[in-house]
């Protein structure tokens, strides 16, 4: 088993865990000599080591299960009806991803600009945040013509992107067929 893990807190770990690491070859270079020394001098470690080593060898020797004789033939018959799908990167249109990104960024920037535009920077902060929040009249924002126009543009842009996405998908399906 070719693994590479280091352990800095070997002192905290149990014998079994440290021995498994040793058997798997994942003990750190610092820890290995200590374990080897313990295996030579400590009967408890030695007994446990042999027990785990035997379990390790048994697990390695367990045989794999085999499917029925016809398995491979069944798979090949199944795939004969199919086509390999084109690699994901070839059919994901980057323009759509960019479009969606731009759509959301525009949306966020639009709201931020509008929000900051509404703030009266000359007012002194003598009232609490809760009081200020209660003063906000949300209906005022959404009755504004410019906000409505902005939202409408975003909806149209969203529908356009969706249409673009589906037409691309349809083209891929036609190609596969």
């Amino acid at each position: 088993m070719n693994t590479k893990f280091n352990h800095s807190h070997s002192g905290d770990r149990g014998i079994e865990e440290r021995l498994w690491d040793y058997i798997d070859g994942t003990s750190s270079a610092n820890e290995t000599p200590g374990i080897e020394k313990l295996l030579e001098s400590n009967i408890e470690w030695k007994t446990k080591y042999h027990e785990l080593l035997e379990a390790h060898q048994l697990m390695q020797s367990v045989e794999l299960e085999s499917p029925s004789m016809r398995f491979s033939k069944n798979v090949m018959e199944e795939i004969a009806k199919l086509h390999i799908a084109p690699a994901t990167k070839t059919y994901i249109n980057k323009r759509i991803i960019w479009g969606i990104g731009i759509f959301f960024i525009t949306l966020i920037i639009g709201f931020l600009v509008y929000g900051f535009g509404q703030i009266d920077w000359n007012v002194k902060g003598d009232s609490t945040i809760t009081e200020n929040l209660n003063k906000i009249n949300l209906s005022k924002f959404f009755n504004n013509t410019w906000v409505n126009v902005f939202m409408m543009i975003n909806v149209v842009l969203g529908l356009f992107l969706l249409d673009n996405y589906f037409s691309n998908k349809r083209k891929v399906l036609h190609k596969d067929a």
Binding site: P67, F71, I84, P86, A87
Partner: peptide
């Protein structure tokens, strides 16, 4: 269960085939 395992395994190879370009 061997029957289910065989069905699932077949499905896995078919999926792998279809996605091989990936």
């Amino acid at each position: 269960n061997r029957e289910d395992a065989e069905e699932v395994s077949q499905d896995i190879f078919v999926k792998a085939y279809k996605a091989l370009a990936d």
